[in-house]
Design a protein around this nucleic acid. Sequence first.
DNA 1: CCTACCGATCGGTAGG
DNA 2: CCTACCGATCGGTAGG
Lengths: 217, 217
Amino acid sequence: MATHAGGSLGRRRRSDGERTHAAILERATQIASVEGIDGLTLGRLADALGVSKSGVYAHFGSKQQLQLETVQAAGAVFEREVLIPARRSAAGLSRLEALCEAYLSYVERLVFPGGCFFAGLLAEVDARTGPIHDLVREGERQWSRTLQEAAAEAQHRGEIAGDTDLELLGFQLQGCLELGNYHFVLYREARVLERARLAVTGILGAVRTAPARGDSA
Amino acid sequence: MATHAGGSLGRRRRSDGERTHAAILERATQIASVEGIDGLTLGRLADALGVSKSGVYAHFGSKQQLQLETVQAAGAVFEREVLIPARRSAAGLSRLEALCEAYLSYVERLVFPGGCFFAGLLAEVDARTGPIHDLVREGERQWSRTLQEAAAEAQHRGEIAGDTDLELLGFQLQGCLELGNYHFVLYREARVLERARLAVTGILGAVRTAPARGDSA
DNA sequence: CCTACCGATCGGTAGG
DNA sequence: CCTACCGATCGGTAGG
């Protein structure tokens, strides 16, 4: 309903309400990454923020809306911490490697205290139905596509073998990344992420057409 | 306290109470595989069984005991459906292949309605602490070890290359299996399990020393 | 195994 | 944003 004409003051500063809303969602992603999206309750979130339950509720109007916005907020963090950094690497094999490393780094730095937000959410809602299931399914599909497109560009450039099955390559890499996340959170040892990195390197090494600088022989 | 001397009647038949207990746990594993171990509540379980809440409660004495026994009951199913069938295959590469196929078949047949019980549980409790976390961690460690031991025997027999890193091979296979499970439950398409099978075959093909019967060239 | 209950917490509402 | 409340459900208990 509001027009874009803001008058002589130009674009308004982000309001207090908007900043509070964003702060609530940041806390919500932290809680949900450990307790699950179902473990995120209005009361727990309100306690963590030091406000009343209805003070939180008023921002969303329903628990489902809070959950959906929390998932979307986590998606923005994933983009900022994984997708955008990887885009700084050259398209092709470099970017494919960068995507894998950016993901493992995002896990290792505990951007979310419970590890990858979407790895946890995937397992929580995969067997259910509803809007959150659908949101997660689309996010997972997009992540698979991102890996596969980077692999396709690497193949187009002749950096990986022409007969490489890109779907399988992406699947194998994605499996190593997700298992790396689960094991890191489960065992709490940095060593398991090193194992994931070596597994990724091994899979890429098997399809690479030219040895990387520094390889022996 | 009871002795093993059962008198002239020999070993007693399994009592009604024991059969009821087992029936409760079977239902509990089904509910927990979809709703999570935290989504398994006494009230929901009682409703599904058509008994009163305290009728269920009396069998376990606490919710934690119910949860622990449910996880153990699911472990017995995993052993029956995955580990024991795979042991019918010859030790070495055949058994490693059989372990992967038995796992994917167990997922595909929906032995648990929510897919692999432990894949879901892993993601649910990896970031928490307590006896269930510990139980899952030991189970996951054992599953990794089982895959790795089969790979070691394959290497010992000369079926896979002598310089294969067994830990990485096991990790890559385990990643494909778990991602196959998550995607099958998420997308509900049989095709994604075919992808997982091909991903496993591709990984094993890269380290195999002799071509399998039927391979071209 | 049952009914009947306990205090705590759930999502959500009323009224300010 | 708050207090105060609603009915439903949670894990657990008492008493039979």
